[in-house]
Simulated assay, not measured.
Amino acid sequence: MTWGALITADDGTQFITEESTPISLQGIYTGSGTGYVNLTIPIDTNDVVLPFCLATGNIVFSYSISGTTLSVAAHANSADTAQFTVTCYVFTTREQPLPKWGVAIWDKNGKCILTNETKVLTDIVTIGTKGGGDSGLNLSTTRNGKWAIVPELAGFYVGVYQQRPIQIAAGFTANYNGSTTAIKSVLVTQPPHDAQIGAPLDTKTIVRAIDVSRYD
């Protein structure tokens, strides 16, 4: 660093104003429905984008980015007809809006990267051990408080139904009941009746999560 400021977050993360742009909260987005809910969120194509999701049910999340749109999909298991609410906390490297008063910091290109109102993404927790017995389809934990996760695939179940191959995806849910959050793998679709299900294809993936009560 030839000039600027060195700022350290509570978890020890360092931001050098000449070289670093913090990933910070762009906004909180919600939607409700049964079966399937899709959130369409505007973003800047030049920004890094990272969504963290939770729901009031065993809901599987996925997301995609196309141009200036982030699409976050929330799928309930096909056997679950209860209404649910999904909430997505979107973090980006967008230029920060200027506060009415306080502190503002710009990078060397003139982009405002940090103000006294910026909610910087910190304290990301890794749940599970990649490739271990507590990953992928076998990952299951309950945490006190309100936690959201980055959408991730847990694996697949493959089998045969009416002499045709079938494949059922499983993803991770963050099911918040008002006091605790259950984080585990969930099937997107129930296997058809009388289907023959073979050995699962386990991705052995982990989950990245944050305590979103810090951002509400």
Rank of each mutant, 00 (worst) to 15 (best):
T115W: 05
L139F: 14
L139M: 11
P151S: 06
L137T: 12
V160T: 13
R214F: 01
W3G: 12
C53E: 03
R143A: 10
K146T: 06
A5V: 09
V212S: 08
V125C: 04
L70D: 06
I124P: 08
I168P: 10
A169L: 07
V72A: 05
Q163N: 15
Y89S: 05
I127A: 04
W101I: 10
T203R: 10
N175A: 14
T13L: 13
I23G: 01
I23P: 02
N175V: 05
G133Q: 13
G155I: 03
R164C: 04
T40K: 11
I43D: 00
W3T: 13
S64I: 09
A74L: 10
T205S: 15
T92G: 03
F15V: 13
C53V: 03
L153N: 15
Q83P: 01
V150D: 02
Q162I: 03
G131A: 04
V72T: 05
V60K: 10
G128Q: 11
D202T: 02
T13G: 11
L39A: 11
L98E: 12
A74M: 14
Q167G: 14
A74C: 14
G198N: 00
F52E: 00
D10F: 02
Q83T: 15
Y29R: 00
A209T: 04
W147I: 06
R143H: 11
Y36A: 10
S20R: 06
A199H: 09
W3Q: 13
A169S: 15
G155D: 05
A55Q: 08
S62M: 07
T92Q: 03
L50G: 02
V103Q: 08
G133I: 10
R208T: 13
D134R: 07
I206L: 04
C112R: 04
